[in-house]
Structures are given as C-alpha cells and as structure tokens.
Amino acid sequence: MSFPKPEFTASQPVAVDLPDPPPQPFAGLTRRASATAAAVLPPAFTLLIIMTVWQLACGDSYDGLPSPSRIWLESRELIVDPFYDRGGVDKGLFWHIATSLQRVALGFSISAVCGVLLGVLIGANRWAHRGLDPIFQVLRTVPPLAWLPISLAAFHEANPSALFVIFVTSIWPIIINTAVGVRNIPDDYVNVARVLRLSPVEYFFKILLPATTPYIFTGLRIGVGMSWLAIVASEMLLGGVGVGFFIWDQYNASRISDIVVALAWVGLTGFFLDRIVAFAGRIVSRGDALS
C-alpha cells in the first residue's frame, strides 16, 4: 500500500488572498485613546489621592505646611502666569527656570565634551586609567555644594561658580560610563578595525564612538539629572536670578506656598531634561539600545 507523496515547493511564498476586513474608521483612534488613558489615568488618580490626603492632613491651619487649597489661594498668580516680569527678581517662574536652564545648558555642555574625552582616554589607555581612575573615584563622592566655596574663592563671581559646580557634579558619571563603554568594545570590532587598517582617527569615529554611544548616553542622562540637582542647590547660596534663588527668597519672605509651586516646576523640568537626553540617545543610536 502506498500513499501519494505531496509535493512541496518551498521556493515560492504562498500568498493567500484574505477578504479585506470591514472598514473600522475609528479603530486606530480608539486604540490610541485607550493607550493614552492607560498611561495618564493611573498617575492622575495617584495624584488625586495624594492631594486629598494632603488637604485633610494640613487643613486650614496657617502655620506649617500649607494645604493645596491654600496654595491655590496664595500663589494663584504664580501658578497661572509663569511669564510675568516686573523687573529685578520679581519675575514669573518661567524666567527663573529659564535662567537656571541656561546655566545647566552651558555647564553641562562643557562637562559632556570633557567627560567623553576623558572617558575615552581612561578607557583606552591603561596608564591613564591607572593614574586617573583612583583620583576620579575619590572626587566624584564630593557633594556638589562642597565645591561651591572653593569655586567662589577661585572665580570671585556667582555665575562662573555656578557653572563650575554644574560641571564638576555632572562630569563623573559621564567619564565613568564612557570609560566602561570603551573598555567593553568587543574584541571583534577591534579585530575588524585592525584587519581594515583603520587609522586612529577612523577608528575613533567609525568604531569607538558608535560602539560607545549607548554608554555615553547613560552617563549623560545621569549627568544631566545631577547637574539639575546641583544648580538648584548652588543658586540658593549664590543669589540673583534662578529657581534656586527664588526658593530661598520665598523662604525668607515666609511664602511657603510659592516654594511648593516652584518645587513642582523644578521636578517637572528635571523630568523633561531626562526625557530629552534619553530621546537624543535614541535618535543618535538609531534605536539600538537604551530604554
């Protein structure tokens, strides 16, 4: 007894004509709306609970921490109009944040460039690593504000001192992550470069930098967060314009409600800084790595 042998030809993909699904004009829209709701609703709900507990805990008392309703009453102008400017330091929060962000942008840019270069150096050169790494490991544990008196003594002015504090706070994670990235370049890539006889410059741009990009951006993300921490703290001591100074000024004027509003701004700004760097990392590494 024999069975007929089925014949398969695997060379041609089998195309099956499926009937078109009935048009659902709002399907995509509904799906997107439900995805957005899933992302937005839980934190909104949590926020609501926190506000309620806060309101109940603080009540209407006029000393200590103000309740949300009192913050709204006292700091309404600050909340609804961040853009007012009455000259001097009497400005809306947007202007204070913008000043702080400018300092961060400058200080962080300098530390990004120096950090990546130093990281490449200690990652690629064994002697540079032996000589510099122990020193960096000690320096990176110095708290940001501890640098402030020294930098004031060195620069005599508030603005360069603030920049230096940002620089010195955010450079360590950039150096360390870059160095780790350089040391983790797979031997295979190095061998490819050697077989192709890439020059040091070609190696740097075509192998080292792209292979290290995910590590560099991890360092930049940590660094930008730390520099935002540092700027707010150092502005509290330096004075002038800036969100850190604003917080200290309101404390001296006993306007605690304004401080709460400023804290919300500081938190949101830090969050967006982190997202921006993460987004830039995704663009640069073309979605290869990074979450």
């Binding site: 295979d188 490819v192 192709l196 006889r197 290869d288």
Partner: peptide, 28 residues
C-alpha cells in the same frame, strides 16, 4: 601586522550593529 590582503571571516560574523548590511561591506 593585520591587513586587508588577509581578510578574515570571524566565527561570530563581527558585523558592526550600527551599520546596515551594505554599509558594513562599504566600510571595508
């Protein structure tokens, strides 16, 4: 020293992940 007149095909392919197939060959 290593050189392109002795091209190596490595066991684990060693393609550069940030380049496309064509760019990997084009680099060489």
């Amino acid at each position: 020293a290593p050189g392109p007149e002795r091209a190596v095909v490595f066991q684990n392919h060693s393609l550069l992940p940030w380049l496309s197939v064509q760019e990997n060959v084009r680099l060489a």
